[in-house]
Design a protein around this nucleic acid. Structure first.
Length: 353
DNA sequence: ACGTCAGTAAACATAT
DNA sequence: TATATGTTTACTGACG
């Protein structure tokens, strides 16, 4: 007989919190920075390379939508966020339908209407709207509530979804509150720090993240080795609460955990945490999505050519980077011209058949 | 039919 | 101890 689970369900919405040290912050990389990066990679709006003569209606729509999206980006500072298109439900293949592009969602006028944004998008907007580009979960809640009254009366559980999203979505990263300074400090400092208070027990994640301390052009930071898998190395160690596998080394040098006495590992957790966006993880995620779709398209379009599915053309680093940047734009609600081109070529191939 | 994704619920762990 | 926060798993439905 399995023990009956006690209903340890927690009330999700009990308005106010007492303690909440607000130690957890979330930080998003700036959309504009994403734009910048893409611009540097020849993917920005001004460098859209669709030859005007050959633009089809659909692509024209995409172009318009691109500019619309840029307006959306510019409107992030506007707390009202009216008349914007959802950036979430558009994929790489289908052009935004009129239903999308014409949709003017006004949260104020439709307080009972569920916003057409995914939670990740909401979180992203919330963070992006914060001057410091970082927010504690609590403030994320509040931002969402402020801007989307729907959630005020929504069934509880959306906060759980927010947390779930923050935790699951690899583009949100938890780092120390004063991480920016922390990162800039020398490794020695960090090491001594670690020795002193030996890192928080459960700070998994990070490893090689480019921590976007404001304004810094982070693009030359080594492109994260964020293998999705490495995030889960903890699995087993969990039982021994003090020995979580992952460490919070955030940049290059490794502070070998072994250096630290096991005893010191007891209670450190002094560094408050914040979250940053791992742009590359995000890009890789989006890239996977894109590739999946391409694959599906190929599968459905070129059935006779099954081979093509298995032997995917090797991509050069440049290609990869372009796709990554494109993916960033995608997150920001901007469809990179790369996708247009891809679509066109795919379509062209299809039509040529 | 299948895989992927987002949303949701829930259990559980940890921090305050 | 209660609550907030964070992590993970499982399930579902939409979608291509």
């Amino acid at each position: 007989m399995g023990p009956v689970m006690p209903p340890s369900k927690k009330p999700e919405s009990s308005g106010v919190s007492v303690a909440s040290g607000l130690s957890q912050f979330y930080q998003a990389s700036s959309i504009t920075r994403a734009l910048q990066e893409a611009e540097e990679m020849d993917l920005a709006l001004p460098t859209i390379k669709l030859e005007k003569g050959s633009i089809e209606d659909e692509e024209l729509t995409n172009l318009n939508w691109l500019h619309e999206s840029k307006n959306l980006l510019n409107s992030f500072g506007d707390p009202v966020l009216r008349s914007v298109s959802p950036v979430q439900d558009l994929d790489d293949d289908t052009p935004p339908s009129p239903a999308h592009s014409d949709l003017a969602y006004d949260a104020k006028q439709n307080p009972n209407c569920k916003p057409p944004y995914s939670f990740s998008c909401l979180i992203f907007m919330a963070i992006e709207d914060a001057p410091s580009k970082r927010l504690p979960v609590k403030d994320i809640y509040n931002w969402i509530l402020d801007h989307f009254p729907y959630f005020a009366n929504a069934p509880t559980g959306w906060k759980n979804s927010v947390r779930h999203n923050l935790s699951l979505n690899k583009c949100f990263k938890k780092v120390d509150k004063d991480r920016s300074q922390y990162v800039q400090s020398s490794n020695l400092a960090r090491k001594s720090l670690l020795q002193k208070k030996q890192g928080s027990p459960a700070t998994r994640s990070v490893l090689g993240y480019r921590l976007t301390s404001d304004g810094e052009p982070t693009r030359n930071s080594p492109l994260v080795s964020s293998d999705p898998k490495e995030d889960h190395t903890y699995s087993f160690a969990k039982s021994s609460s003090s020995d979580v596998g992952e460490e919070a080394h955030c940049d290059g040098s490794e502070v070998d955990e072994a250096d630290v006495e096991e005893d010191d590992k007891s209670k450190i957790k002094k560094e408050p945490k914040e979250w940053s966006v791992d742009a590359l993880a995000l890009a890789q995620h989006k890239k996977r999505q894109h590739l999946t779709k391409v694959k599906q398209r190929v599968a459905s379009d070129t059935l006779p050519l099954k081979k093509r599915r298995t032997e995917k053309p090797p991509e050069s680093d440049d290609e990869e980077m372009k796709e990554a940047a494109g993916s960033l734009l995608h997150l920001a609600g901007v469809r990179a011209c790369l996708n247009n081109i891809t679509n066109r070529t795919a379509k062209g191939q299809k039509e040529q058949k």
